[in-house]
Design a protein around this nucleic acid. Sequence first.
DNA 1: GTTAGTTCTGTTTTT
DNA 2: CAGAACTAAC
Length: 672
Amino acid sequence: MDIARHINRLNPRQREAVLHTDGPLLVLAGAGSGKTRVITTRVAYLLSQGIPSEAVLAVTFTNKAAKEMRQRVMGMLKANGTKPPLISTFHSLCMNILRREIDKLGFRRDFTIYDTSDQHSLIRNLLSEIRYEDKSFKPESILERISMAKNDMPLPRSAKKDEPDDIEVISDAVYPKYREAMKTLNAVDFDDLLLHTVKLFNEHPAVLQRYQDKFRYILVDEYQDTNRVQYRLVSLLAGKHRNLCVVGDDDQSIYGWRGADLGNILDFERDFPGTVVVRLEQNYRSFGNILQAANGVIRNNRQRMEKTLRTEQGSGPKVSVFRADETDDEAKWVADRIELLKFEQQIAYDDVAILYRANLFSRPFEEALRRKRIPYTVVGGTSYFEQREIKDIASYLKICANKRDDLSLLRVANIPKRGLGPGALGKLFAFAKEHSLPLLDACRRADEVLDLGKRLRNSAQGLAELIERYSARFAQSKDMSNALRDLIDEIHYREHLHDLYKNQQSVIKRIEGYENFISSLAVYEKEEKLPDLHGFLEALALTDMLEQKDETKTFGVTLISFHSSKGLEFPIVFIVGVEEGILPHKKSIHDVEEERRLFYVGITRAMKKLFITHTRHRVKYGKAVPSSPSRFLEELPAEVTQNVSRFADDSPDTPEKAAEDFFKNIQRMMQK
DNA sequence: GTTAGTTCTGTTTTT
DNA sequence: CAGAACTAAC
């Protein structure tokens, strides 16, 4: 059979991971050890053993990973026409469970998903409700604390335990109100998707059992990134049949700050007795010197499972370390080097990546590359969904889909201007509260709202009528994209944009934005078997369906953060800004080990040649300040690195030295 | 109800 | 320095 061929090509460890189908299995997959291949082959193998597709579940974090896995599994299965199993992100898995079962928790099945900015505005509303006027609190820090609480993270109580600081007090006050509000709004946030599912399983054992018996074989990718709630979810689901395979690399755990709990992977053996551990340490990606650099660095972490990456490739060139005088020199040097590589070694620009700690460091490199006419793409940045016109239109759809979603109604109530400003809405809102009605109903019954002018009553009723009418039209699920277009026309949204922005260019951009949105609705309708508005809004919240157009092909040199680079590989890698305060970032200094892992992730992206750069002076907010080399540089084994700085010494940064270096530098330039 | 001036802040990111 | 968010004056 076909599958045997795939299995034969694996190394012994990999094969072990594939063939161990029953009972708990922990696969510690080092960087570049062929992890995806193992996972895919394992899934295909399970199916070839006669296990029905429906009994297999693979969970990932991102849609991208899910998609990739799906494609590769399908590629292996295509010959024998087996149905692919469910490969899903944590969130869409929970979404699908809740869509069926959430009424058991007192929500309606037409619930809405709130994204971060929805949460943001809810918090703001709640704060003003408590009449908390102090503006020094950012809603996002409250949100952060709420999210931490939900994910059961030990909250960093103020170091001294005498009295909780203000942000704690206010968060503790807001949290219960937040939960309450979410329930009346019939909305759940991203954390809730997971949390409610766990709650559902805990409170309804029969439901849990149904899913346990359905998914008899479970696989979790990137297990080192799971948080406590995800851990609980997985334990519950796999609790009965215990055929749980988790794959991950504790050394690549770089999401502690958003709740990932390294303990999940470190304690897996303890939590699941009888676990078989497979270590994949054979690396197929990088030359030996790069691996030695990586091993040398990660060795310094205490909290980890011992592993050492090996390769059968040669050692390759040494890791070059360059020290620039300041930010622009660093960028210029990198650009020069890339150009040189291109000419001397016929390297394609696509093979090169520049990695940094924070996105804002991309600027000088963009500039330097542009000056040299070197093509590049910056990965990361603001997402499409943040755009105003998208939010506006999406809010209209949300209120049509879930008539209790006051927040979305609030957002669109005065877009375009209907005279429903804060004053009028406040009165409507008070009325709604008084009669415990959704805001939409309050608008419909605006006649009964005292001290509201006639015009405003008409406005509110008109709005309610509009929403009801389109809601009914969308509910028919026929030709939703045309309905949306009519809605946009009817509210004169285009004209609204013209009023809002005097710059023609940006108006055109935004019109393109919503046109794009409409066509993605059209695409959704065409591709989905049973399209409905909820399905579309889910896809919108849970997938990257809108920004997938240019994902696969990056052009030229790739500029990317360490975090986003995880999982990728490049023949040539530049790691830049490796300085104290940046690579162990000053705000993350409490978890130096995670910062070290970040560096490790960066190093292990490189296949053939790695450059590491740092500067003596960094331009920060317009001013140059002295900057010292990262402590991690000392951890690079000397035998695999070479210093390629103009000044070979590692002298401290005294004025005398600086002058001397300057002089040497001049001399060098004269010799050229 | 807007628009221009002002203050403030400044990691990492996915769902 | 630069972008966001907020305030004060039209």
